[in-house]
Design a protein around this nucleic acid. Structure first.
Lengths: 348, 348
DNA sequence: ACCCACTGGTACATCGTTTAACCAACATGG
DNA sequence: CCATGTTGGTTAAACGATGTACCAGTGGGT
């Protein structure tokens, strides 16, 4: 609709000022609601602006205000294969839901490893391209909080809530609650030989969940059949499942660190002639949409990534000087019981 | 490493000029390789720049040059539920692979529907936030090419290669080839009662693939048992599968428009007591990583989204005035035969 | 000795906004 | 009638980089 005659340059604040018969300063004040302007002039200016289809140039505003209204989300993807982690779609949805209405944009970058990620932040900050960053995959010894603090870049860390870190953490409380609930569920079903497939050891949530897993078992006087760390790839899921199923005292239940891997695990078990949940119970993590439709439907832990994303956006916006009501993030990860878990096999 | 003493503002070109003992103009020319500067001075300037950890301000450069080095990718997600289409992860990977090394950023936005998407482009252009856009999900009557052309924004349309549209299309040639191959594969296995689950009718590739499907059958003198359009949601996949399996002359093979839906279809069939591929063969589309690990492993069509993304990025960069070698996109969608397809059930 | 070409660099206007400082006009109170 | 506000604007200086037009020096040719 705002289609301009071919080749016509975008209008500037000057054009609007001329159209409305005022100075450019007045236009600026009118659209920003600052300064002292009569209601009548304000209206005139706004009309002129819409008539010309003008919006303030983002570059000029950014230069003047030293604010870009852009947030970075850097995704570290170790291998080319992991790729499709649908986790991020959910996260991005949550973020965008809060950013977009406030005129903020999300700048997405993919990197291979942590050094690359650090360099990228340095560049983005040096170029003044972003106002803040969302950090994912908190590590046990994470270099990013210190780095970003040094660079003076507002950030939030997804995962564990703040722990005296340089940047505030955003996430559901009681990180371990989901896994704990999963274990309790399995125990109730009669399982005693349970194994845990964990994520990369350096990730923070890997630790939290592993601890929760072991504690929940210990409370019933049990110990895990095994705990295996993996790199989150599908290949690893298959390999580790085979490995666990070959154990002398084969586990009757497997707990995975995400749904994709759980699905691989189920496939591997079935391929080995086992029925799920008849012979083996499987629990995932993330509650991907897909899990609802598989056969068997996947029992999993829902950690509400989308809501966490929204909360993270709000926290970050607040740190960027936007006045937003602080995010309240109640709730905790919860087990969603479906069909991939069942009573202990009678033979066992 | 570039950690500046707390509160110190980022250095500007002036600081670098002072450090190197030259004028700001010289600094600019040195880093941009323009103008006539002696090698010695150039080196001195670059050294000074790294010493201070300076990079040209993106905002200032954008303002001056009327170029932001930012590309928009707008994702339309009809419902909240579709969400996790892993398709996009692949696409983004492909795009980023070419954009990032050239200093371009990817600005990601999520919208609900086409009107919103149009408005968004208008805003982004009016604010001068982007240099170009990548359009996905080409529609039969797509308003975006005209719109963006009117706005003067470079763009590429993913999917069918150019067809006299206002923006160049990027995609594998012979769009239908994959589906055609799938049908041939099924026919070879002896199937004659094949049904097709299609995507939303307004999407361009939906048409192309549907046509390919029908033509491939027709060549053997066959007609589809049924063709059903859906909205790409998992729910729809389940519903339509149930529906098709209840048909009087039940199909022995189902072709789906993406892997997520194919998985849902398999689950639904299994739940109905059918074995895959024993009683029913299923073909997907996209070649998601997950499909390799399911039980049964998914037969699907690989359309190399990542490579298409890379090619799209190159085409777009070229239109943005970057001098890149034009993308060559050979190949076509190819069938990947795995385990979800098998010979015609003997009873049928 | 003089003109010219060339090399290597600098001064300055400019991109489109924002904002502090300033000012005209007009009412108000003493 | 004059200092004193108040209201509603304007002027001009940034913000940080780019690029055109200009200039100082050097050396060559005649």
């Amino acid at each position: 609709m705002k289609e301009r005659p071919e080749g016509a340059a975008r209008p500037t604040i000057k054009a609007v000022a001329a159209e409305a018969g005022v100075s450019t300063a007045t236009v600026s004040q009118a659209v920003n609601g600052t300064g002292r302007i009569s209601d009548a002039t304000r209206r005139r200016v706004l009309e002129a602006a819409t008539r010309l289809g003008w919006s303030p140039s983002a570059s000029a505003t950014a230069l003047r205000r030293a604010r870009t209204r852009t947030i970075a989300l850097v995704v570290r993807r170790p291998t080319d294969v992991l790729g499709a982690d649908p986790h991020f779609s959910e996260l991005i949805t949550g973020l965008e839901g809060e950013l977009s209405p406030r005129g903020y944009g999300l700048l997405l970058h993919l990197v291979a490893d942590m050094p690359q990620e650090s360099t990228l932040y340095e560049r983005l900050v040096a170029e003044g391209r972003i106002d803040g960053a969302v950090l994912t995959d908190a590590r046990a010894d994470d270099p990013r909080p210190r780095l970003l603090r040094g660079l003076g870049l507002p950030a939030v860390l997804l995962g564990a809530p703040a722990r005296g870190s340089a940047v505030p953490g955003v996430g559901l409380g009681q990180q371990g609650a989901g896994v704990r609930e999963a274990v309790d569920h399995l125990l109730e079903l009669g399982h005693t030989r349970v194994a845990y497939v964990a994520g990369p050891a350096e990730l923070l949530h890997t630790r939290l969940r592993r601890t929760a897993f072991e504690e929940a078992l210990a409370e019933q006087g049990l110990r895990p059949v095994a705990v295996r760390h993996t790199d989150f790839t599908e290949e690893a899921a298959v390999a580790v499942t085979k490995d666990l199923l070959a154990l002398p005292d084969r586990p009757t239940a497997l707990v995975f660190p995400n749904d994709s891997m759980a699905v691989c695990g189920i496939g591997t078990a079935q391929r080995a002639g086992l029925r799920v949940p008849g012979d083996l119970s499987v629990v995932g993590y993330d509650n991907l949409p897909l899990g609802r439709w598989l056969h068997p439907r996947l029992t999993t832990v829902d950690q509400q990534v989308q809501r966490v994303g929204a909360a993270a956006a709000l926290t970050l916006l607040a740190r960027c000087g936007e006045d937003v009501s602080p995010a309240v993030l109640d709730g905790r990860p919860r087990l969603v019981v479906r069909e991939s878990t069942g009573p202990l096999p009678t033979g066992a």
